[in-house]
Structures are given as structure tokens and as C-alpha cells.
Write a protein that binds this DNA or RNA. Sequence first.
DNA 1: GTGGTCTAGACCACT
DNA 2: GTGGTCTAGACCACC
Lengths: 125, 125, 125, 125
Amino acid sequence: MFELDVRSRKPIYEQLVEKLKQLIINDVLKEDEKLPSVRDLAQQLTINPNTIQKAYRELESQGYIYSVKGKGSFVNPVQPTKNTEELKKVREELKKLFAEAIYLGMTSEEIQALLHEVQGGEQDD
Amino acid sequence: MFELDVRSRKPIYEQLVEKLKQLIINDVLKEDEKLPSVRDLAQQLTINPNTIQKAYRELESQGYIYSVKGKGSFVNPVQPTKNTEELKKVREELKKLFAEAIYLGMTSEEIQALLHEVQGGEQDD
Amino acid sequence: MFELDVRSRKPIYEQLVEKLKQLIINDVLKEDEKLPSVRDLAQQLTINPNTIQKAYRELESQGYIYSVKGKGSFVNPVQPTKNTEELKKVREELKKLFAEAIYLGMTSEEIQALLHEVQGGEQDD
Amino acid sequence: MFELDVRSRKPIYEQLVEKLKQLIINDVLKEDEKLPSVRDLAQQLTINPNTIQKAYRELESQGYIYSVKGKGSFVNPVQPTKNTEELKKVREELKKLFAEAIYLGMTSEEIQALLHEVQGGEQDD
DNA sequence: GTGGTCTAGACCACT
DNA sequence: GTGGTCTAGACCACC
């Protein structure tokens, strides 16, 4: 299900957060769907349950999931209002990346192609 | 000149690397222009010189600047050949960000507008 | 395990990088094998841990090892794609050394003998 | 005549030593031929005369040239006896480089081709 | 004066 | 306990 890279400089829990975000964003994990339990996922990925829990906590605080005591963790519906802060960050990040991509030689056509590629995948799911 | 957040989770030297990259990419620091000396910048930012040096070294190994003992550190001309590795990373990053931006409600029109905004600034310099 | 020359003009961390490279190249340290911890090696060699870390970091950025926070540093499998830059350097170095060896009186037979000697050892492991 | 790389991490005087060695090795500078004067070379290369002098001193101590007060510096005839020490170093260096080249994927055929290339150039000069 | 190396020692993040 | 970051302060090599 996941491919975690122990070699990466990025901490494992951050990788997990990112992967799960991707799954939610790409609608693989639908609204109110239950995430795998901490213990199950830990066993599946052969990593420490604490690490999983840390990832879930992070996702919760970012508003992507919610936890119900004794039942598990579930995907949050999108809350457009709450995300203005995050949108601002994403905009800033995009600007930086665009500048860097152009500096490294990418044309705006290539960048747009990439965008449409992602967008196409989005709709297909 | 810079605004560093000492409290941030991101290491100071990485923040520095990013800021300096921005300056180079946006042509504020031109080719072969001298960067502030390690000691000067350290004093200016009230940061340890070693930290500055770490940032400079990182920028050097990424090909953005070069350092000459006894003379200083200077901006490198772009080397399109050497940056294939970095381009790959940027492409991956862009894909992730696009997905996230769309998830948060941005339309592809908005994203493209942002791209053109950056590109415009680029050409004006 | 290592013999470092603290008096040498070559920085300690560079000596370390070289020695460790040798061990990896000669398969003394196998793929994914754990390197000694920064602190352990520092104590063993009576050298400051920062110096060891600098060496490890250099090896990491050259693609020979990878480091995982909280776990340790490990030998990387060879990545033939990523090393084009380094190969170029090695080729240049070889050319220079060949010229010097010939100047000092070595015949090309002697040089080839040396090559086969090394190659033999390589295959025996 | 020379191409010095100020960008290089290698000190300029070392680059000079290497270049001059090459010229001697490749017989561009013949036995007892006069080297350019320190001041001339300094002006030609637009670098500090002290740097040139340091390079000449180094070459002298390595036995490649000799200096005559008031007359200049001259190329030394090869002294096979004196070079056993250096030969030993070169042999060690070659072994290391061979191992590294093989590790990075070069075949012994490629290496030998490189050798013959250098050797050919040697005889042509 | 410039970058580069090294030490000693503190503190943090991850597992 | 692991690697990673940062500081303070010393000394060296190069130009």
C-alpha cells in the first residue's frame, strides 16, 4: 500500500503524513472512510506504532482526519473555510517552485503539462 | 536583508539556503557577484559563523555558488547539465503541490495565473 | 580500524571519507550494513563527533551512504545513474596519474599489471 | 597558456604546480628550458606574484625544476633514482583510483583505452 | 581579511 | 541511543 523510504532524509512519520494526504486528496480514501488502525498499519509497515500515531496526530491537527475514541480515525470532509491559511502557504510554495523550475530550465509549457497531467489523474479517480 | 525565524522547525542554515537560492534565482544576486562574507553575514544576522558556512557549503554542493579561500563566495553561472537530479526533485514537488492546491479548491486557471505572474517578474529583471 | 594522520595537511574528515570509501568499494562494508555510530567512532578515534559527522555527511551527499535519524548510518547500494559526475572526475584523475606514472618511468605493462591486481582482488570478495 | 579555474576548490598555486608538471611531463617544457619569470607569469595570469613563487618553490622541492639566483628557474632532467618515493605514492594512488573506477562501473577495457590514449599523446609530442 | 577545519559542549528530533 | 543543529572560540591556509 505504501512505499516508505527509510533512506530518505525525511522522517518516516512525515512521509506517512504525506502519503496519507495524497490518498485523501486523490480520493482513494473517501470522506468518512476509516483509516487502518494504528496497530495494523504498524505491523503492515513493520514500523513502530508510535510513529504511526504521530502521523495520525499530525493529520488530525491539519484537519485532514478526525479521531473517535474507541472507534478509530476517519477522513474529514473538506472544509473550505478552514483552509485559507493553508491555501496561502501553498500559493507561496508554488511561486517559489515556479521560479526554481524556470531557473533550472523548464518552460511554462512543460509546467502546464505537468499540471494537466495531475488534473487528469484527479478526475479519473 | 533576510528574515530568519530562529524558532522555526526548519534549521537556520536551511532557511538561509532557501533565501539565498531565491536571491540567485530572481537575479538579485547576479553571476559572479560576491556574497557577503561569512563573518559579516554572521554578525549582521547575529548568528554563528559556522551556521552561515554550513549554508554556503550546501549552496556550493548544489552548484549555486562557489567559494574561494581568501577571496570570498560568488554566484555560479547556471549549469543546465548538472541539474538533472534537481529538476527531477522539482518535478515531483510540483506534482504534489498541484494535487494539494486542487484539493484545497484552487482552479487550474488560478494556478496558471500564478505561474504567469512569476514568469512575468522573471522577464522584467 | 583506521589510521588517521592528524598532522597531515589533508583535513581529518577528508581522510575519513577516503578510508570509508575504500571500505565500501572493497566490499568490506556491505550494502545496507550499519556504519559505526558517530559517537562511537569519535571515541574510538579520539576525534570530535562533529568531525565524524562532517565525513558522514560528505559521504551521504556523494551517494555512498545514507543516514537515518535515530537509527544510524548505512551503506548505500551503488547507483550507476547518479555517478556520471564522479566518473568524469575519476577519468580526469586517471589521465593525470597515467602521465605522471609514465614520466616516472613506469611502463604500460606495469600499470596494467597493477590494474589486474586490483581487479582480481575485487572479484575474489 | 594556462587555464586556471578560480572557481575550483583547489588553491591556485596547486593548480599551477599541476599544470607546470603536465608541461614538463609532456615534454612541452624541455630539459634545462627556462620557465617564464615570476613577474611575467604573474602579469600574464593576472594573479599575485607570491602565488607564482609558491608554485615554483613547490616544484623545486619536488625535483621538477631548479632555480639559479639572478637567472631564473629551469626544468630539471629526470632523476630516476630520486623518485622511488614518488613512484610508491603514484602506485598507491593508481590502485585506489582503479578500485573506484571499477566500483563506478568502468570496465578494465575502458581504463586501458584511457591509458593508451595518454601514452599515444605522450609519444606524439 | 577570506574561507576552512576542529574542538567542546549543549540541546533537539526521531525511533 | 541515534543523527542533526547550533554556539563559542581557536587556529590554519590562501591571497
